[in-house]
């Protein structure tokens, strides 16, 4: 899934912003959360689980499950509650 999952036509989004995920630039809109912006462009594998190193991604979208935690400007944040802004640097927490 690499097409844009944003629903078209229902609302006007905020100003376009760009932020970086690892080495990739992501097009997003003000008002979106990092998790939703990543989801919309098909980036759903955000981290690896601690013991099995299994793929994980956003799950509850309510700031509870901690599955969407990524590094944002060097700090661990729940991406589902973190708003996008221009130039944000996001690192996924995937173990190779």
């Amino acid at each position: 899934m690499n097409d844009d999952l944003r629903i078209q036509g229902a609302v006007f989004r905020g100003r376009p912003v760009r932020f970086q995920v690892d080495d990739q630039w992501i097009q997003s809109y003000e008002g979106e959360t990092v998790a939703a912006a990543l989801w919309a462009c098909g980036i759903r594998h955000l981290r690896s689980s601690p013991v099995m190193a299994a793929p994980r991604g956003m799950f509850c979208y309510m700031g509870l499950c901690q599955e969407c935690v990524v590094l944002i400007d060097g700090k661990r944040e729940t991406s589902c509650s973190f708003p996008v802004s221009d130039g944000l640097r996001v690192s996924l927490l995937k173990t190779p």
């Binding site: 989801w39 509850c60 979208y61 309510m62």
Partner: peptide, 18 residues
């Protein structure tokens, strides 16, 4: 990844329009 809660789906659609 790709499995989410029903609640997550409602927020994603309603609030984030995704």
């Amino acid at each position: 990844p790709g499995v989410i809660g029903l609640g997550a789906a409602t927020v994603l659609i309603k609030s984030q329009q995704v």
